[in-house]
Design a protein around this nucleic acid. Structure first.
Lengths: 208, 208
DNA sequence: TAGATTGTTAATCGATTAACAATC
DNA sequence: TAGATTGTTAATCGATTAACAATC
């Protein structure tokens, strides 16, 4: 666990570097300096170098960073070099939107299981994945060693679903329901609170 | 603009206070201390007091904060005391999910206009709002003095849509498309990058 | 008055940035 | 060698927290 003292802010920037590098790679750029990379994403070159320095020495002095090399290192650092088993709970509008979202596949992250309460939906497909009934939750998680659970269900059920997922062995939860949930500290939890983005726009607009 | 030196982190916490207070108000709690409020949301009492102090003195020493009073102040501070005109561009799965999302209405934020490219969708309703064709974008924005634009369209069109919205007079953009867009600095912009949440879970899981 | 809690100052902690030796 | 750029140390900046006088 070398990230004991890696700033949280550094970790948030790594995906941004990663995606910029993916783009550069597709453009067949093979070397990039911290200055150029930083300019593309609005981050000072010295911060780019400092962030990367928490994980190793990936560049060459006087030259810069080889795009494919840095990309490979970042893929490993970000945990994208391995396969993750991901279950989506809730096949409503948001569930559909998430499963179709272009950003995940590009990263090699696939939602491999989908659950819903509605028996009528069971058996139909969401993308490549067949929807299963939520009663199968524990079985699906246990049999497939599911790592990550995504909750796209109504707020009232979020805590209950989260507890069941964790009980069955899920180690990380991404909660889109408009309700904060609480879990033991060893479980990774992101409460994705969509209203905050909109409030923050209203806040800034109202003082102009 | 009293927030010249208000930390960005404070602004991010204000919505969290707001929603906790809304809940307390519904529970008919009428006074709360910074300590109790902080405990409910996992923030130290001293930070709660410091954050509020950027905007005024809302509590009574020895007593605490009157919930309805603080709520009213926060509503004003957050810009929720006024009506905002909001247009959603894209009535796909994500658009549907956003328009149904429970969190916004609770805050008094309503999506009042919806646009889509698909002529077949035009005329049908998304919630209470009739879908209009995207060709009407400029007219809709100008006639209604739309303040905020939400982009829930494919990544390839995001920049183009954003430019049109801004050209027509929109002052803030919330972009859900998996593509970073760039706008003049006077426009408030949130790039809501959904992949970052998932990557960050993978990152933390992979080093346990 | 005694107990509680605010608002704010000062101390601490953590993250960003500037500067520069190392080296390609 | 001269120019460029890294990796890292030290200085700066900004945010959090501790402490406490003010006051209900």
């Amino acid at each position: 666990m070398k990230d004991a003292m890696t700033p949280a802010t550094t970790i948030e920037r790594l995906p941004i570097y990663y995606r910029c590098l993916q783009k550069l790679d597709r453009m067949d750029v093979d070397v990039i300096s911290s200055k150029d990379l930083g300019e593309r994403i609005g981050i000072p070159s010295t911060q780019v170098r400092k962030d990367l320095s928490y994980y190793g020495e990936f560049g060459r002095r006087g030259v810069g960073y080889e795009v494919p090399v840095l990309l490979k290192h970042l893929r490993k650092i970000l945990g994208l070099a391995q396969e993750w088993e991901i279950v989506l709970v809730g096949a409503g509008d948001l569930g559909h939107a998430l499963s179709k979202y272009g950003g995940f596949k590009k990263l090699g992250l696939n939602i491999n299981h989908v659950l819903d309460v509605d028996s009528d939906k069971v058996g139909s497909k969401l993308g490549d994945v067949e929807i299963q009934h939520i009663d199968e939750l524990v079985d699906v998680v246990k049999e497939n060693n599911v790592d990550i659970g995504i909750i796209a269900a109504p707020g009232d059920y979020a805590q209950e679903i989260a507890d069941e997922l964790v009980g069955a062995g899920v180690k990380a939860i991404w909660n889109f329901a408009p309700a904060r949930i609480k879990l033991p500290p060893e479980i990774e939890l992101r409460n994705e609170d969509l209203s905050i983005g909109l409030i923050s726009l209203a806040y800034h607009l109202s003082r102009k």
